[in-house]
């Protein structure tokens, strides 16, 4: 591990602090995590992209405990709902997300995809009754998956060190910065009424967690060290997303 692992990180932290603190609750734990990460900077050995491994591991095990006692049980109860209801919930939040996905496609220069996302919002918000039905997909307007972290990546911004965020899980410095941006424009966060905003956020997180039931068991069984497995998984997954499913294929140097 190079001791320089801290340097780009410090720059990012300053960047975040310079941003106006819009009072959004979600940004605060992230800034805290980044600040704390600095103190763990002395760590040596290990993964080149994970200079803050000791802190990350601590956050990871905190998240695992929170998941075991709160998130997973709630998701398991939610999962008893009939499939059409769960599909409706997924479609509803998917529709809210499509506007920002479209903007990100435009920012990445993918104009056809961006327009198609706009079309999806128009169709699904009207014919699809407030987004409960994904009519657009049936019409051939494919659902995309974009966010600010991916846009930054497509512009050539490196991912920076790997960080595990409290409650939210694996991320990188670039993706955390992206996430702060994503939250600023997130439709759910625009609701003034706290009760509505919190209920919708809770429902969305529960839906997302429920979709991972099963996959989490597989990860648990597959990994010798779940922390390292999830880190490698996240980094590969995001690289694939930045390249829209077709990352450059490099011949493995270790594959004789």
């Amino acid at each position: 591990m190079s001791p320089d692992g801290c340097r780009p990180h410090r720059k990012h932290v300053t960047m975040i602090k310079d941003k106006p603190q819009s009072g959004s609750l979600a940004t605060r734990p992230m800034v805290l995590a980044l600040a704390l990460a600095l103190t763990a900077c002395a760590s040596t050995g290990g993964h080149p992209k994970d200079p803050f491994e000791p802190l990350n591991r601590a956050t990871f095990s905190f998240n695992e405990t929170a998941d075991k006692y709160v998130m997973r049980p709630v998701a398991e109860v939610y999962d008893y709902l009939p499939l059409p209801i769960k599909v409706g919930v997924g479609n509803f939040f998917g529709n809210l997300g499509d506007v920002w996905i479209g903007v990100n496609n435009l920012l990445q220069g993918k104009f056809v995809d961006g327009l198609s996302d706009g079309g999806r919002v128009l169709v699904n918000s009207t014919v699809g009754i407030f987004g409960l039905f994904d009519v657009a997909s049936d019409m051939g307007l494919e659902k995309h998956d974009e966010d600010l972290g991916q846009t930054l990546g497509s512009w050539g911004v490196g991912e920076g060190p790997y960080i595990v965020l409290p409650f939210l899980g694996p991320s990188t410095v670039r993706d955390s910065v992206g996430l702060i941006g994503d939250l600023q424009v997130d439709p759910v966060w625009q609701f003034d009424e706290v009760a509505v905003r919190n209920s919708l956020t809770g429902l969305r997180l529960t839906h997302r967690r429920a979709a991972l039931l099963g996959a989490d068991t597989t990860a648990e069984q597959a990994a010798l060290d779940k922390y390292g497995y999830m880190r490698s998984f996240y980094l590969q997954y995001r690289l694939n997303q930045v390249y829209d499913g077709q990352p450059p294929r490099v011949k493995d140097p270790d594959d004789e």
Partner: peptide
């Protein structure tokens, strides 16, 4: 989803 079920083990195995 772009994640190799095989090379995902490399960090893990290297550590061992």
């Amino acid at each position: 989803a772009g994640v190799s079920l095989v090379t995902n083990y490399r960090d893990d195995f290297g550590k061992e």
